[in-house]
Simulated assay, not measured.
Amino acid sequence: MKLYKLTTLLCLCLSAQAWALSNDTEQPIYIDSDNQELDIQKNVVTFSGNVVLRQGSIDIRADKVVVTRQSGKEGQETIDAYGNPATFHQLMDDGKPIDGAAKKMRYETATEYLKMTDDAVLIQEGSEIKGKIITYKIDEQKLVAESGKKQRVTTILQPNQLNKK
């Protein structure tokens, strides 16, 4: 438990200097795919086949994406992405990228919350975190990584980042 807290603290320190582009979540969401199905009554759209979702510098790529608009309210979409893996990319205000991958991702636009599940990995400036589940609060740059039953959270810190501190 102590190692888990230390790892999380180190990760937060590493990302504290790089904030997500401040206007990403204020941008429209663009989705390209091979197919699209719409259920108007349930406010659910399913995109499949080479799905590319963009919102500002946020770029999510997946085999399938399901967008649900809760109670039909614009700006409160839940986006579930599935792939082998699905990927996440975003630029920080300092121009440096953060990348993630997992078999399942959930992005909640209203709360700017990303949850990556199953073989999740998040990479920033060469350092990476791997775990069963990684949650990432985009606007606050807060990250939590959890291990699975037979795996542990793995963090790789690059020496050049440690020397900058």
Rank of each mutant, 00 (worst) to 15 (best):
T8E: 12
Q151K: 14
A102L: 02
K42P: 02
T25S: 11
A101N: 05
G72C: 02
Q70M: 15
D24N: 04
I123C: 06
L114P: 00
A20Q: 11
C13M: 14
R61W: 05
L10N: 11
S127F: 05
R69A: 10
E26H: 11
Q76A: 07
F88G: 02
Q70E: 15
A120M: 01
T7F: 07
N35A: 06
A62S: 06
L14C: 07
I133A: 03
S48N: 01
K2D: 14
T46N: 00
K150F: 12
D39Y: 01
K142I: 08
L3C: 08
N23H: 13
S127G: 03
M105F: 05
D34E: 09
K165Q: 13
L6A: 11
A101Y: 04
K73W: 02
K164C: 01
D63F: 05
M116Y: 03
V44I: 10
K103R: 13
V51K: 00
P28Q: 06
E108Q: 07
L91K: 02
E77N: 08
D118W: 07
E125Y: 12
I129P: 01
K165P: 04
Q36N: 09
K73P: 06
N43I: 03
V52I: 13
K130Q: 12
G72S: 05
G56S: 01
I138Y: 06
Q76W: 15
Y4D: 13
